[in-house]
């Protein structure tokens, strides 16, 4: 069984010496990093070139004439319809959608996962099976019935509507994530708490939630990415006043018949990704310490 860590350290084995093995580790990691960064290289160099250079088609070359104008235009000047204010327009809308959706979907996933893995509720696992199967259907198929449903409920095209949609569509994966994480915890932990007289919520808030840091970090990474990059739900359910940033991004990069400024496209894409990237980077601290901080002697 997996037991909580007791040391404030990564679990990996200590390197015994700086030798071939060490060089091998770095060689692997650095070449992997190169593979991951390759498309980013193309995007960054393209975003720093004037269009005349982009048309020449030397996609891997460094800019001969360096310019940051595409970045400025992408953020605050590029046209996305009648307005020419770049992608900055929808930034706060995206934040307003992200935060409640993130908190509620993780909470729902944690509670569901906990109830499914530690409590024998009849029929619950069948529900979970259906939920999991539902995760495989392209959600575009669900758009029409959901639009009608929300419209009858009177909340179509509102912030509440988009938040509900994110919670609902995040539910299969969030539930699975927490369910499987809790399933790998020692059952003795739970039994001991039960014997101490802990009820459903007491055990959840006092015993399990504090131990859940690593999985909450993973859940956050997943949901921040999914919700922040969502386009079709935001477009369909959020309403005109709450349109997320990705709608502006799509307007810049996805015009069918319009001329394309690839340098601005690339800059806009990187700028839009900064929030999830920051979350990835900052989440790192909890990959290590969170576990130790939440450790419970079992």
């Amino acid at each position: 069984m997996m037991a909580p860590m007791t040391a404030d350290m990564p679990s990996g084995r200590r390197p015994r010496r700086i030798g071939i093995a060490r060089i091998g580790v770095y060689a692997f990691l650095l070449s992997s990093a190169a593979f991951f960064l390759l498309p980013l290289w193309i995007m960054v160099t393209t975003s720093l070139k004037p269009m005349a250079e982009v048309w020449e088609g030397n996609i891997l070359a460094l800019p001969a004439q360096f310019t940051v104008e595409p970045w400025i235009r992408a953020w605050s000047e590029a046209c996305t319809g009648l307005e020419c204010n770049g992608i900055s327009v929808g930034f706060w809308n995206s934040v307003r959608i992200l935060i409640p959706s993130l908190v509620l979907s993780i909470l729902a996933g944690a509670v569901n996962g906990y109830a499914l893995s530690f409590w024998r509720v009849r029929g619950a696992n069948l529900l979970f099976g259906i939920l999991l199967a539902g995760a495989f259907i392209p959600y575009q198929v669900f758009l029409y019935p959901l639009v009608r449903l929300f419209s009858q409920a009177g909340i179509y095209n509102s912030l509440a509507c988009i938040v509900i949609v994110h919670v609902v569509f995040g539910m299969p994966i969030m539930t699975l994530l927490f369910r499987n994480f809790y399933a790998s915890l020692p059952v003795e932990l739970f039994n001991a708490a039960r014997i101490d007289g802990g009820g459903f919520w007491t055990i959840f808030t006092h015993v399990l939630l504090p131990m859940s840091t690593p999985i909450i970090v993973v859940a956050t990474i997943l949901q921040v990415t999914g919700i922040w990059n969502d386009f079709i739900f935001g477009l369909t359910f959020a309403g005109r006043e709450n349109l997320p940033m990705t709608v502006q991004l799509n307007n810049i990069v996805n015009s069918t018949q319009g001329e394309r400024a690839y340098n601005i496209d690339m800059a806009a894409t990187i700028l839009t990704a900064l929030v999830p990237l920051a979350v990835y980077f900052l989440s790192g601290r909890w990959f290590v310490r969170g576990i130790a901080a939440g450790a419970v002697k079992g």
């Binding site: 419209s151 179509y156 005109r240 810049i252 069918t256």
Partner: peptide, 25 residues
């Protein structure tokens, strides 16, 4: 007063529009 709702890509724009018609908005 022109209120602009621009959505790039004919398919995305039409889908959004039809959904709003169906949804009563």
């Amino acid at each position: 007063t022109w209120v602009d709702s621009a959505i790039a890509g004919g398919q995305a724009a039409r889908t959004a529009g039809i959904n709003r018609i169906v949804g009563g908005n």
